[in-house]
Amino acid sequence: MGDARAPRRPLGLRLWLSGGWLTLLVLAAILAPWISPQDPLAQDLFAGRLPPFWQAGAEPGYWLGTDSLGRDVLTRITYGAQVALVVALVAGTATCLVGATLGLIAGYYRGWVDLVVSRLIEIWMAFPPVLFAILLIAVLGPGLWSIVIAIVVIDWTRFARVVRAEAMSQSAMDYVASAQVAGRGRMGIMLAEILPNVMATIVTMLTLEMGIAVIIEAILSFVNLSISTDFPTWGGMISEGRLSVHQAWWVLVFPLIALFLTVLSFSQLGEGLKDRFDPVLR
């Protein structure tokens, strides 16, 4: 029975698809200045509300059409990906670091640290998150870094709660007692024994959080509280596209699709990675 070693599992379709979309997006964001057909900010009132390429009246060079000010939709989505991905990576990682660290310490050390962290989580959870974020931006002033800070501040509890519970259940396992009998210190046990066993959970949540960060950024842009309005963001595009949805649906729909695929890809990436982190499933 012990000899049956499962062959390494293939990557799986969802990991391919989600990884593929995110890779495409990263490349597009980095190469935006070179591959974009148009200038993201250039207005051309004579080329307003051009439809996407397969519809009558489309013009070459404007693949996904233009908005009411004549700005190219595809170009703006590509540049919008820069903001979305920077927010996803920076805010997601920062939220994860803050939340997971506090959760791990609270769950393993217990005692007064846990008391403080737990109370803090409970108080935090009582604030409506989006309102909280809007309030924060109002205080900090709009800008990329304000968004990142706002996301970390409102979402660290998501990590802290789950990681704390996981660390607590792992602490009760005998392999922790066994490390203590072997003479490992508290810090060593937390980092070498417990952390690797909550890592799968942390990674899954991290990718989920990246998707959530993209959504929060879009929401804040939607209510015009994101970075300066002249730089293209998906949320800003959706907000503008909403006004002219009956005349030019493409201005609303394409950034929405980009947003949807990105958030979905992040969560699917997490699901796929979780299995690969589990030595029993791997």
């Binding site: 072997a182 508290r186 066993n197 030595p279």
Partner: peptide, 26 residues
Amino acid sequence: SEDELRPTRRRFQMIFQDPMSSLNPR
């Protein structure tokens, strides 16, 4: 305390009831 115990710990060891939970799965 744990620090004072550490040098002595090597002299007394333990084998646990549930070998699955006492071996770090990773």
